[in-house]
Design a protein around this nucleic acid. Structure first.
Lengths: 223, 223
DNA sequence: ATTGCAAGAATGTCAGACAATCTGGTTGAC
DNA sequence: GTCAACCAGATTGTCTGACATTCTTGCAAT
């Protein structure tokens, strides 16, 4: 038997496409937090039937990207500051651990990729494009999480980060935040490159605390 | 405006009931890992329609309790040891943190409840009823997670524990594991009762490492 | 202005249908 | 006898349509 090349491309189903489209719409802020989603409208816009849409909505509900109240339907939850804080705290736990592990085990090639993503963020930071900043910063952390050696850590982290995407855009556009963030990320990168677990943990923790503080400021100013 | 009394009991929908029933069936081991779930059979057994069932299955898929491969349908995933290890590692992160926080902030009444749950486990451990042991041990940790002050920590933890429920039953029935577990849990409880964060973390970590080792042994022996 | 009600909108749930895909066993060729 | 192709049944993916229940909203009445 030839090795399983995983060539059997699993066909993308309507429900998968729909979940992806809706997730993207939520993460990019197309649906305002607090706004309700009307099934019939979404069906028409996406060109799919109600059963398919409802399956997709259940997936997103389980991801906590939307809330479905019986007889009221789905809505994008408005994150309270307490909830956001709780998420930031768990994120800290995970990211610090991931950064520490990464320092001990990241392969050279992936380290190079991490460096490239840092450069991409540097460019975005200079360009004052806060959307690009969020994306490239997310890439940076994705690489760290992907190389920490624990796929569950990565999976849980991705789920949590998605839920606070709303804040990330806002906080990144704070005066000076991008530059500060860049310095912190560079410190993380260099600690990992040096294989210094302890320094990587410390730098990662510092970065997250500052990010949390920035998110708080932006929230208090924001609304 | 009067405070939100949350008296509006949200009606339980068919899909919620179904998710709960199926989740219970999976966690209790009624569906063997690796076995496929046939929609038509489940519909008949549960007395519901296919759309409702499929919504429930999507929820469980997002919880990672089942896997749905396009055109092959849902199945209970057979956890590999690597995956289980990864889950145990993240669980350790979360539980250690929760135990530490708990030591600093648990209210007296909840502490008492924790003590009661410890007694319940003690009783179960003496009775050689491994099902009761798993349940009561889960209760014990639920109380800790519920009082750590971070609902996200609790939520993520619950999701992870559900995925390794299969192992928990097996490892708890190992010779002497229940008694050993009891001693470890008592140590955790006493650290928390004393308000000693550091000790609580340490005890919690020790407990998890042993649980992981027990799970490994039971897995290697098991199949 | 507040309350109550009625029309409309939206959701929860079901039944039935059909095409696409997978599975397993049978047939046929070598 | 073994292996490959193939066919029938089973199963899933998706849609349409329908209807009862529940929520929302605007209007009317006090």
């Amino acid at each position: 038997m030839p090795p399983d090349l995983n060539l059997r491309i699993s066909p993308r189903t309507v429900q998968q496409e729909t979940v992806d489209k809706l997730r993207l719409a939520i993460l990019s802020g197309l649906f305002q937090p607090g706004s309700r989603l009307i099934e019939s409208q979404l069906c028409a816009q996406l060109g799919i039937s109600r059963p398919s849409l409802r399956e997709a909505l259940r997936s997103l509900e389980a991801e906590r990207l939307i809330e479905i109240v019986p007889n009221r339907g789905p809505a994008v939850p408005a994150l309270s500051w307490e909830e956001a804080t709780a998420i930031y705290e768990v994120r800290e736990l995970l990211e610090v651990e991931a950064a520490g592990r990464c320092a001990l085990r990241i392969p050279a090639e992936q380290l190079h990729e991490l460096e490239r993503s840092l450069s991409a963020f540097e460019e975005a930071a200079a360009s004052h494009d806060s959307m690009a900043q969020v994306t490239t910063a997310a890439d940076f952390y994705s690489i760290i999480l992907a190389n920490c050696g624990n796929p569950i850590l990565e999976e849980v982290h991705r789920g949590l980060v998605a839920r606070i995407s709303f804040f990330r855009g806002r906080s990144m556009s704070l005066e000076g935040r991008a530059q500060s963030s860049l310095a912190e990320m560079r410190e993380i990168f260099e600690s990992i490159a040096a294989g210094d677990e302890k320094a990587a943990r410390k730098a990662s923790k510092k970065h997250l605390l500052k990010a949390k503080a920035a998110a708080k400021v932006s929230m208090e100013n924001g609304i």
